[in-house]
Nucleic acid binder design. Structure first.
Lengths: 191, 191
DNA sequence: TGCTAACCGGGGCGAGCGTTCCGTATCGTT
DNA sequence: AACGATACGGAACGCTCGCCCCGGTTAGCA
């Protein structure tokens, strides 16, 4: 099963396609015509299909990197001494990406085997990050990882496609405060 | 400008098409093929186009109702004696719809003239609802209508497409608490 | 009941897009 | 330098889907 190394030009084109796909998907989401990606890479559509069997496969190759990056980031922050700040930092990073990467929602919803595995891995990392923040009293205890995941998707959508530069920060503040817990003294906590 | 009344069968078919479109869009979003809508209405595609010049126009006719309903609801609640509870009620209603109506995000992003007008109208109503809740101390004062609108979209996306029946309630709790304001880290809300 | 205008159905056209195919160009090796 | 293997480009195919058209049907009125 060992694969022979790619020819030099093939490897070069493969990289160009991946780079073009990364940009194109980020700008326009999964919907970009594959021909546009090929054109942006300075390559014919056929060449794209030589390297990736389908458009979905290409998208997966791109979004896999995104999800894995997030997972790695979450894992790194989970090791921090200040769990609350680490949690905040991750959310901030996410909010920052939401403005620029239109394909993040699609990546987070991916159904391919590799993407699902990466997502599970990310959720494991998030679980640690969340639990530590909760133990430190920085996040309300009745929130589950799945809730956090859903909130992340919501946050991304709330921010996406707005030209208001301050919106991301304000959305983040609301979600962050909501995750901290109820404010009204007369109101019992959720659980 | 006075239009003659439609023939009885025409009016009947028009209503069937609208009802079918309402269901189909709610189930699958704007993406449903128009032929599916026609089939669901028990009608040929040509009949759909007799009543609505374009698929977008049909979608607008449907989403206009949705947005207007929301606007009317917001306006009604804005007149309540208990601004905080009224605000909560509106958010709850929205969360309830999010699970069932897949087309709400598309409706909220619509670009047609009528939809834009309806959206502006809804924002006016929301503005009153929000301002009164803020004056009552139930919502933090630094939130703008546009923020609320973005949060609504995020909330819908966070809830959508999950089979967890409790998720909506938990998402709502987080967003609601976040809108109330920052929580004092020095006084944990539980125990 | 019969006439006419309005309306219906569904086959079909054209555009967009994912995917494939094949003749040609390029690489790497002998 | 020459040859075989590999990769390239882009034209073409098939499918989906929005939209139009025309032969047949039906509603409303006298």
């Amino acid at each position: 099963m060992t694969e022979r190394p790619l020819r030099a030009d093939a490897r070069r084109n493969r990289d160009k396609v991946l780079a073009a796909a990364r940009e194109a998907f980020a700008e326009s989401g999964f919907g970009v015509p594959l021909d546009d990606i090929a054109a942006r890479a300075g390559v014919g559509p056929g060449t794209v299909y030589r390297h990736f069997p389908t458009k979905e496969a290409l998208f997966e190759a791109v979004s896999l990197v995104r999800v894995r990056d997030l997972a790695a980031d979450a894992r790194a922050r989970a090791a921090s001494d200040d769990p609350g700040a680490a949690f905040d930092g991750f959310l901030e990073r996410l909010a920052g990406e939401a403005t620029a990467k239109r394909d993040i929602p699609d990546a987070l919803d991916g159904v391919g085997a590799a993407t699902v595995a990466a997502r599970t891995d990310m959720q494991d990392a998030l679980d640690v990050l969340l639990r530590r923040a909760q133990e430190a009293g920085a996040v309300r205890p009745d929130v589950r990882v799945t809730d956090l995941f859903a909130l992340m998707k919501g946050l991304i959508h709330a921010i996406r496609g707005s030209d208001d530069p301050g919106l991301a920060g304000r959305m983040l503040a609301v979600v962050r405060d909501g995750l901290r817990g109820p404010n009204d003294p007369g109101d019992p906590p959720f659980d």
